[in-house]
Design a protein around this nucleic acid. Structure first.
Length: 250
DNA sequence: GGCTCGATGAACT
DNA sequence: GTTCATCGAGCCG
């Protein structure tokens, strides 16, 4: 389909053709993560054909200060993106099977960000559905499409190659033609969207973390069905319980 | 070099 | 409610 007049007009502003919403400026992320996080609710994250309205996020703080943060012990090859400039995407692999995505906060060299925990898919639901249902053969209800950080990453199609990408200068992955890719495969942006009424923003302890649970840096939109259920951290059970060592006959 | 466990999700009882 | 899949980062020796 050739670009219509609306898409053509938006092309100059950087606004996204699916939503008409403009990208957030980089300065938005140049603040502490716990200030950025509640402001991210209601914003729209776009990756290729899928757009998602954020309904739940968690802030992770500074190296040496927030024991729950990946950056707590300083910079490593894995978390280096978190120490880069704000407004970039930090995608990491966890539990041997899941990807999760953060948006980097504060100036380069600092090391904090906001984990994207859940959202409502507002465009490209059929693509998200296909990704989420792939391999399982099960139908996924709409509200479950991006309910939880790993599900969100799957719905948006985030993977290793998206780690470090700039979400404040909307565009396609390196090498692709930005004009041709606008609104298409790989196009990444965080858009203004529509923030919820301040009274609807709630906060509480972060989900599933083993340290720093007392810090109420999880933020969500009250009553939204796409917000993931709260889970306390459960220490892993020792493996030796399953060991086949003991088969004496008596 | 080896071991532990994690910002999880899906299947199962 | 409980169990398990699965692998990489980080810590320990």
């Amino acid at each position: 389909m050739p670009p219509g007049p609306v898409a053509a007009a938006l092309a100059g502003s950087g606004a996204h053709p699916l939503t008409g919403s403009a990208p957030l400026p980089r300065g938005f992320f140049d603040r502490p993560a716990h200030e950025v996080a509640p402001d991210l609710l209601g914003r729209v994250l776009v990756h290729g054909p899928v757009a998602l309205r954020l309904t739940e996020v968690e802030a992770y703080g500074l190296p040496g200060q927030d024991p729950a943060a990946h950056t707590y012990r300083g910079m490593t090859p894995r978390n280096a993106v978190m120490f880069g400039p704000p407004g970039h995407l930090y995608v990491y692999f966890t539990y041997g099977m899941h990807f999760c995505a953060n948006l980097v906060c504060l100036p380069e060299g600092t090391g904090s960000g906001v984990l994207l925990r859940a959202g409502e898919v507002i465009a490209g639901a059929e693509v998200a559905l296909a990704r989420r249902g792939a391999g399982t053969g099960r139908a996924v209800p709409g509200r479950e499409l991006a309910r939880g950080p790993a599900r969100l990453a799957v719905a948006l199609g985030f993977a290793r190659e998206d780690n470090g990408r700039d979400a404040c200068s909307p565009g396609a992955p390196d090498g692709a033609d930005p004009a041709a890719a606008r609104g298409g495969a790989g196009w990444l942006a965080v858009l203004e969207g529509e923030p919820p009424a301040p009274g609807l923003v709630r906060s509480g302890p972060r989900t599933g973390v083993s340290a720093g649970k007392e810090t109420p840096w999880r933020f969500w939109i009250d009553g939204d069905p796409t917000v993931s259920p709260y889970r306390v951290h459960v220490p892993r059970r020792p493996r030796d319980a399953a060991a086949p060592a003991d088969r004496r006959p008596e």
